[in-house]
Simulated scan of single mutants.
Amino acid sequence: MLAALAVVALATVSGGAAGGWVASRDGAPGGTPASAAPVPAELVTAAGKTVPGVVSVLVGGAGGASASGSGFAVDDQQHIITNDHILAKGRNGSVTVELPDGRRFAAEVVGREPRSDLAVLKVPPSAGLAALPLAKPGATRVGEPVLAVGSPLGLPGTVTAGIVSALDRQVRLGDNRHSAVQTDASINPGNSGGPLVNARGEVVGVNTAIATIDGNGSIGIGFAIPIDQVQQTADTIIGKGG
């Protein structure tokens, strides 16, 4: 009998980590690590360009409810793209953005589009975030290498690598159906809203959900909202909200 396959969004709720082993920030498990395959130099360069523009999104709601995820700067006006479900799971509470250097800023919610699961935030100019370049719509190809960048399980600046596994994958999240970029880059709770970038450091999608068997975490099937939809929705929100 096949185990039940579910698609789940990736906000971390109330600061909790899903089951399984989680490393502390200061240490690593014992034993001999497995040999890693060589990492292409262009991915190292892409990671270095991307991490400075990626933030942690922290939402505090009523009754102590909270949620966290990721986001990234999209222009020099300090607009940040993230997932709407992070705000919803935080019960629409106050939003704080934590930068890679540890500074925190209260964020304005410029606008939200729940059907697309996208939201746009804005922080003061003093944040000085570097905007990430966006890939050209329609340019993403199956098999090309990609990086997922974000704050899984509260670990900011985490970078994982994989490939584009499929395009136009139909995925249902809640009451809405999405056409998604599928990837095998490891993504976990807290990656929501973070960028999926190609080897040139261009954003090809917004990491949003994973497939999981019986709720047991990532199985190497993740989904990102494609950049053409992201750009269209963000432009509309920014145009309305400033």
Score class of each variant (00 low, 15 high):
L173Y: 04
V74K: 06
R169E: 00
A107G: 06
A73Q: 10
V204R: 06
A199Q: 13
S179V: 15
A41N: 12
I81Q: 07
D117S: 06
R115V: 04
A166V: 14
L99W: 13
L196S: 07
A6G: 00
D75T: 13
A161Y: 06
F72V: 00
R104I: 05
A199D: 15
A37I: 08
G215D: 03
R169Y: 10
N92R: 11
L134H: 14
I210D: 06
G217H: 10
I219K: 13
T183P: 03
G20C: 06
V51C: 01
D184L: 07
V203G: 02
G150S: 05
P125W: 09
E113N: 14
V39G: 01
A127G: 12
D214A: 15
T160V: 07
L5C: 04
V74R: 12
G239N: 15
A67C: 05
I225A: 03
G143W: 06
A119W: 07
T208V: 06
S94V: 15
R141E: 05
H85I: 08
P125K: 10
P40W: 02
I86E: 02
G242H: 08
Q182L: 06
R169L: 11
A3G: 14
I213R: 14
D84G: 10
E98Y: 00
R103S: 11
S165E: 10
P137N: 01
T45I: 09
Q229K: 11
I221C: 04
R112S: 12
V164D: 02
E108K: 09
R115N: 09
T82W: 03
L155N: 11
G61L: 04
D235L: 07
S179N: 12
A47D: 07
P125I: 08
L173T: 09
G154V: 07
P189M: 07
P52V: 09
E113C: 01
V120A: 02
I187T: 10
I210F: 04
G27A: 15
D214P: 12
P29F: 09
P152E: 00
S24P: 03
A18L: 12
P114T: 12
G31K: 11
R115H: 03
D117I: 01
V110K: 06
V74Y: 08
P156Y: 05
G138L: 08
P133F: 04
G239P: 11
I80Q: 05
N216Y: 12
G193Y: 04
R104H: 08
D76V: 12
F223G: 07
R172M: 10
A127N: 13
V44S: 09
G71C: 06
A4Q: 13
N191T: 05
L147A: 05
D84W: 13
G220D: 15
G150N: 04
L132D: 07
V74F: 06
I227N: 02
G63M: 05
A67D: 05
A6V: 00
P38W: 10
A224Y: 07
